[in-house]
Design a protein around this nucleic acid. Structure first.
Lengths: 222, 222
DNA sequence: TTCATTCTTTTTGTATACAAGAGATTTGAC
DNA sequence: GTCAAATCTCTTGTATACAAAAAGAATGAA
């Protein structure tokens, strides 16, 4: 991607979306955004197309571009797929991960724990994200890594809800350690199973998420 | 999708791509395509963005839109992910598939076999595709179904290679029947395992595909 | 010839202009 | 006041015009 305006604009809007800057149902005004970015509508509309194809927004014919947050059912479905993709990555990584990659993964886990201890949740999110991306890479399947990263990005606005719930972060860290241990002993099945549970929404977390979702929905609507 | 030119054009180009109308490395000429479709470059370029985001073509900054067939490694990687998505669909479908869906799936299997008997390979491809799409739907996870369908479409140009090899079609049919049987007895694991093997490229099929790929590459290049 | 350089042409990227549909508003009847 | 129809405004979709970069052709030196 060179210095194309369309690409830059796409990147910026993408960031705005994944950081939850838009409310559910909000329409992205072409002219407003265009002058906000200081560009014409043409590259902006190309960015819209690209974002829509990635699922980050929805284009309705002759109505415009809308942020359509997934409903609760779809959100669970998406996490279900994410869980399976991560499990797949872990399964393959257990056999293929390099020394170097293990070192990097270990570092992110340490950094995550340090962030928790320091109460720095932004730092935690960053390192947590790094952990997962390293895992995708370690799968040794570059296509899989890209697809996992894509869905990961799409779920970004909703992942915070998942982590915010009480006591989730220490549990999450234990799971990271368990994944690391499984990779270390090349235990594909354990790595896959741990990651599947790490990401999936089931049991208590189902209820926690539902509550957060309702809250979020209320806030966004208001 | 209303009556937007961009959408119609996108659809048409997509068809052209998945039916293998373009050679590897081929550049899609904006002005030529525009006048071919009788439209301006604007909707065409929007279609390009959308197609690129779906992975069906590659945009290179200030160079244009190119068809970039995956290299052999990437192709295997993609089928690996496809196998897992189909396994996931089968796993879930075994618990959730409806009577109606089972009937439909059974019909496509019959139609596939009839097509083989009649030597009608186009019909076979159509019904085979229907079989897989029904399976995606039967998973009960609509997001998963969409993602599976997306990758399925992207792999379309290469699936024919896989089926073309000697004796593959009857084997493929046995696998369809095995999937059906597993669904009928709600055997999630069997459904998943059968589908994983059905789609994955391993063992002999690896070599078969590699040979076909080389052939195809040669043909396209020439 | 072969290579590098300059000029020309082609093609992409962006802006703007125009057309047409969706939504809001006004007007009028009851 | 309420509803409906017509009008107006705003927004999207498409075409065209222009700018700039890349590809290609021509020129000239070794």
């Amino acid at each position: 991607m060179g210095t194309r305006i369309a690409d830059r604009v796409r990147e910026q809007i993408e960031q705005m979306i994944v950081t939850g800057e838009f409310a559910d149902g909000e329409r992205l005004d072409e002219v407003k955004l265009a002058e906000q970015f200081g560009v014409s509508r043409t590259p902006l509309r190309e960015a819209f197309q690209s974002l829509a194809a990635s699922g980050l927004l929805t284009l309705e014919a002759r109505r415009g571009a809308f942020i359509r947050h997934p409903d609760f059912v779809e959100l669970v479905e998406m996490f279900e797929v994410m869980a399976e993709l991560e499990a797949m990555c872990g399964f393959r990584a257990a056999r293929r991960v390099t020394e170097r990659q293990m070192t990097d993964i270990g570092l992110t886990i340490d950094a995550c724990e340090a962030a928790i201890a320091a109460g720095d949740s932004d730092e935690y999110y960053r390192e947590n994200e790094k952990f997962h991306h390293l895992l995708y890479e370690a799968s040794g399947n570059r296509f899989l890594a890209r697809e996992a990263a894509r869905l990961h990005k799409r779920l970004k606005p909703y992942r915070r809800m998942q982590l915010r719930v009480n006591g989730r972060m220490p549990q999450s860290m234990r799971e990271h350690r368990a994944v690391f241990a499984a990779l270390e002993r090349s235990d594909s099945k354990a790595a896959a199973a741990t990651l599947r549970l790490h990401v999936a929404i089931q049991g208590e977390r189902f209820n926690d998420l539902m509550a957060s979702y309702r809250q979020m929905g209320a806030r966004k609507a208001g």
